[in-house]
Simulated scan of single mutants.
Amino acid sequence: MADAEQSLAYANADFASSNQLFVDHLLVDNPQALKDVIDLGCGPCDVMLRLAEACPDIRITAVDGSAAMIELAAQAVRAANHEARIVVMQGYIPGLALREHDFDAILSKDLLHHLPDPMVLWREARRLGRQGAAVHVMDLIRPATQEDARNIVETVAPDEHPILKEDFYNSLCAAFTIEEVETQIRQAGLPLRVTRVGDRHMLIKGALR
């Protein structure tokens, strides 16, 4: 989402339920304190702001490839007074200028379907995570047909901005099936499991060995 209008439409959309679902699952699966985490594809940073509110001692590196989106994320972090705990940076995977094995959690929500090569996410998770690091990735599940995708858009977001509705439709069509993601993580050699959560998302989670 390099386009400023597109990024703003996304930032103004109501993703509260799925964003909170992501955080709730993360906290249930990782009851121990999370300290140093990275969010790949942070968008406007709503998910990480929710996580920061729930975990007062957490340190978050929030990454997105879009300069327009990173500016919106930085504004949101400043408004929430979380600049000391959330660092936002523009960058792309692979190739982030970050130290290897430096994080105890690798997080990502709704990035996987945007990647031309989804394997880069799984390789970057292994590169950035410490041994035992939590991997927690949520993404859309591709509907069976394009008509099903249109119906989901009109059911979930009937009153959203037309730009957002078209992006949502394109994202649903670009998403993977659960079986496809299971194949990806087997090829990556990662000990992760894939489950359906909610009505249109999958959750990929586990710990690095």
Rank of each mutant, 00 (worst) to 15 (best):
Q184C: 09
R126T: 10
V156L: 14
M202L: 05
I163G: 01
D46Q: 10
A97K: 10
D110Q: 08
P162V: 11
P94W: 09
I106Q: 10
T183Y: 13
E147P: 00
P31T: 03
G198P: 09
D110L: 05
D24N: 09
H136G: 02
A2Y: 13
A134G: 01
P31W: 01
A62P: 03
L164W: 02
L140D: 08
S7D: 09
I106M: 11
A13V: 00
T61M: 15
D199W: 12
D29N: 14
L112D: 07
A11P: 05
D159M: 07
T195H: 05
Q146F: 10
A157S: 13
D139P: 06
G198M: 06
I178K: 10
S108T: 04
M119R: 04
R186P: 11
V63H: 10
N30E: 09
G43N: 06
I178Y: 06
I106A: 10
V120L: 06
N170L: 07
D57Q: 08
A207D: 14
E124V: 00
E53V: 05
E147D: 10
F168L: 13
Y92W: 15
S18C: 13
H25Q: 12
E166N: 14
D14P: 00
G198N: 11
R85D: 07
A80T: 02
A157Y: 11
P94E: 07
A97F: 08
D117M: 01
G95W: 05
M119G: 03
G198R: 08
M202Q: 05
H82C: 11
A144F: 12
D24S: 10
L98A: 13
S7I: 06
S18Q: 11
I163S: 01
A97L: 12
D139A: 08
H161P: 02
E154D: 15
R78V: 10
V194G: 07
L190W: 02
M89S: 15
E179K: 13
L34F: 02
Y10R: 00
V181L: 04
A54F: 04
F168Y: 12
N30G: 06
R50E: 11
I70D: 13
V37Q: 01
T61L: 14
H113M: 04
T195C: 06
D29W: 15
D110S: 07
P56W: 02
Q184V: 09
H101R: 15
A9I: 00
A79M: 01
L98W: 12
D46I: 06
A133W: 10
V88R: 13
L98Q: 14
L26C: 02
T177M: 01
I86E: 09
P158Q: 08
L27W: 07
A52E: 08
E154R: 15
Y10P: 00
P56C: 02
V37E: 04
D3A: 04
D148R: 02
R123K: 14
G41S: 03
K205R: 12
A105N: 13
S108N: 04
D36M: 12
L40D: 03
A74H: 14
R209M: 13
V153Y: 08
A11T: 00
H101K: 15
T155K: 15
A133R: 10
E53W: 04
P44A: 07
L112G: 05
L40K: 05
M202G: 04
A133Y: 11
P143N: 01
N19L: 05
P116F: 11
D102I: 11
M89V: 14
G189H: 06
R200Y: 10
D57F: 06
D46G: 03
F15S: 04
A207I: 15
